[in-house]
């Protein structure tokens, strides 16, 4: 240890906004393919159990199901607007809009909970007796339904936590008009989680 006077503690890599965004996009690809694997399974099983999937779908509540895409859609609008607000330097409004996003995410989760709860009341929940008696094919439909929407719900939770952290840093001023990449990245994640729902929704609820 010869000298500590060197400025070795200051990392020479400067803030690279594009690099961070590229990194985020690459991460989104992994998320796409994570769900992609499940869509492959869905495609194969739907092919093998064509009629049973129709019957299963008919048992899902379209109205309850239709509220969620609208809720999510609106939440993506608030996220997009919060980025605009921050870019224009209005961090208060940006935080407000993130709060709205979180409220909408909460609505989504509540709706999901309600939907699963009614299934549970009917004994149609993994592990329950009625669920175990489901005929071949239809059982697979509900397996996939619970697995895919469940995984999606986990992603909503992760995305919400991410947005909360971001809102916190906007408040602190670390994320600001000059450096808004982290908010943009949070937004990208949020949009992606919604894009997945765009596909999940018709594939499960609308195959009448």
């Amino acid at each position: 240890m010869t000298s500590t006077t060197l400025s070795h503690d200051v990392h020479p890599v400067h803030f690279d906004a594009y690099g961070k965004k590229l990194g985020m996009w690459i991460f989104l690809f992994t998320e796409v393919l994570l769900f992609g694997g499940l869509f492959l399974v869905y495609a194969a099983y739907r092919f093998l159990n064509h009629d049973a999937f129709h019957e299963g779908s008919a048992e899902l509540n379209v109205v309850v199901g239709a509220i969620n895409p609208v809720v999510l859609l609106t939440s993506r609008l608030t996220v997009a607007m919060s980025i605009t607000a921050l870019q224009r330097g209005d961090s208060k409004r940006a935080i407000n809009l993130i709060m709205w996003t979180l409220i909408l995410a909460g609505t989504f989760m509540f709706n999901k909970y309600y939907e699963w709860y009614t299934k549970w009341e009917h004994g149609l929940f993994p592990g329950m007796d009625h669920y175990k008696e489901l005929p071949a094919g239809k059982a697979q439909f509900f397996n996939l339904y619970f697995f895919m929407t469940g995984l999606h719900a986990i992603h909503i939770i992760i995305g919400s936590i991410l947005l909360m952290v971001i809102a916190f840093y906007i408040k602190k001023g670390t994320i600001n008009q000059q450096r808004y990449t982290y908010l943009e990245n949070g937004g990208l994640y949020w949009h992606l989680v919604d894009v997945i729902w765009i596909y999940l929704f018709p594939l499960f609820y609308l195959i009448i």
Binding site: A44, Y45, K132, L134, A136, N143, F147
Partner: peptide
């Protein structure tokens, strides 16, 4: 207990 690969449930 999600029998995702269970042929008895229509899995493969």
């Amino acid at each position: 207990g999600l029998g995702l690969f269970d042929p008895a449930l229509g899995g493969d």
